[in-house]
């Protein structure tokens, strides 16, 4: 997983993340005008939402949270 929230109050509701994420990670609350990171476990870590986040509400992590699944390096 790599997408993460830095500051929800900074979400200006531009809908970019919800519109572009290819992995269906986001939902959008049209009443509160905020995005929701709904399914982070399916993030492919492409970084497109992070780069397109107009409010700079989203962050990115590239820490290793589990071990590589292959033997090669």
């Amino acid at each position: 997983m790599s997408v993460r929230r830095i500051d929800i109050t900074k979400c200006i509701g531009c809908e970019n993340c919800w519109n572009i994420c290819p992995m269906d990670v986001f939902r959008f609350d049209y009443i509160k005008k905020k995005s929701i990171i709904a399914y982070p476990e399916n993030c492919q870590s492409c970084g497109q939402c992070y780069l397109h986040c107009l409010g700079h509400s989203l962050g990115f992590s590239d820490e290793s949270t589990s071990y590589a699944i292959t033997s090669t390096r």
């Binding site: 997983m1 790599s2 997408v3 993030c43 492919q44 870590s45 492409c46 970084g47 992070y50 780069l51 990115f60 992590s61 590239d62 820490e63 290793s64 949270t65 589990s66 590589a68 699944i69 292959t70 090669t72 390096r73």
Partner: peptide, 20 residues
Amino acid sequence: HFCTSFAPGNVLSCNSWTYL
């Protein structure tokens, strides 16, 4: 492709400049 990944998520850090 090589079957490697030390971190579950590092496309941005590894490919950002190429795709921007």
